[in-house]
Nucleic acid binder design. Structure first.
Lengths: 196, 196
DNA sequence: ATCAAAACATACTAATTAGTATGTTCTAGC
DNA sequence: GCTAGAACATACTAATTAGTATGTTTTGAT
């Protein structure tokens, strides 16, 4: 990686971290350049505006990360329902980048920005739709294989799972204790099993 | 209501509306006093700080409203599962104060403020715990009456329902279309029926 | 080695922010 | 009607904000 694109990437990563913890609007450019030790000139060389940087974070940090941690594991040969449970459990209890008090980065950005920034909204929507359709597809495959009931509606289940994940992430921000994650996972397991 | 307490209440209501739509941090005092046509002197006579007003909004607007719309309907004599479904449907599709693109006021505030404001966090947590425990209690009663399975774990189901609600509210902010609410409600119905 | 463009550095600006200082007016009890 | 405190009004401040103007340095191709 060239020195310049390294600077750009450093900004994106540190800014992502600040935004994940503090929110987008309340993370200032001054704060970002202070923690990255990059000057304002360098920042505005790489990004036209703050929103330009925000979009780059969604597309170049959030999107690939979610692809790796949410989508790819779904494509394993295990039972789709097991996959969904294991991915959720892993995200809630084992992921090293996410902490309970700060929630889900994509969820946070959606909550904060979706009503007021069409570009953010579209970029986030793309990511979520990708997640949703890969859950759907894996469920559809399971129906065809006969491993889950034919009355299962893949679209509904996918949405239900995603909503649950975002919701428990937000709940966790209040509870600040992983007990709620365990409780949630127990019920998720029951819910998924009942689809078999 | 005296003129003074009327001023105070007007501030709280209009500020709530702005904060619901724009977020807490990005709603300025200047904006609040502009839309309420109250002067800064009046504002700071009624509220020590912005956070003081924020707390008052949670305790005096959000809390009673949620009590009325989330808790009280649970106490009707219907089947608890029907109650849960009907309340959720009513909140998602029929509530006149809530709109899909702006999500859930309590969920928004949690997302934005929980990690950084202990007082907000505590106040919001109180509200959610009240909601949660009233769902729990109504499920417990149903178990005792024999109308749902004895293997149902009320704590788990309550958390699952709340997470789902907050999650679909956040999802809706991206989707900006009530189709997702209908899809979610279908699966919620299926999930709840399976507990019988 | 030269040179043009890429990459970065510094010092500024104009707007907005929460909050304050210092008033004036209204209202209720006497 | 008088008066004290409640209720409100106006003009300010200091800090912070995103973004810009105007530079200097670094880099890679020739």
């Amino acid at each position: 990686m060239s020195k310049a694109s390294n600077t750009r990437h450093t900004i994106l990563e540190k800014a992502f971290d600040l935004i994940y913890k503090k929110g987008y609007q309340t993370t200032s450019i001054d704060e970002i350049i202070a923690t990255t030790k990059v000057t304002k000139g360098a920042f505005y060389y790489h990004f036209k505006t703050k929103d330009d940087m925000g979009l780059a974070i969604i597309n170049e940090i959030v999107k690939p990360t979610m692809h790796e941690e949410f989508i790819l594991p779904l494509e394993s040969t295990n039972d789709p329902l097991d996959n969904i449970y294991n991915i959720t459990e892993s995200l809630l209890l084992k992921n090293e980048y996410l902490t309970i008090e700060f929630g889900c980065p994509a969820g946070n950005l959606t909550q904060e920005m979706a009503p007021w920034n069409v570009e953010f909204s579209n970029a986030l929507n793309e990511i979520i739709l990708e997640w949703q359709s890969s859950i759907e597809e894996s469920l559809q495959l399971a129906i065809e294989k006969g491993s889950i009931q034919t009355t299962v509606n893949p679209k509904q289940v996918a949405l239900f799972v995603i909503a649950g994940y975002w919701g428990i992430r937000n709940y966790g921000k209040l509870a600040k204790n992983i007990d709620c994650y365990h409780t949630y996972l127990e019920e998720l397991k029951r819910y998924l099993n009942q689809l078999k």
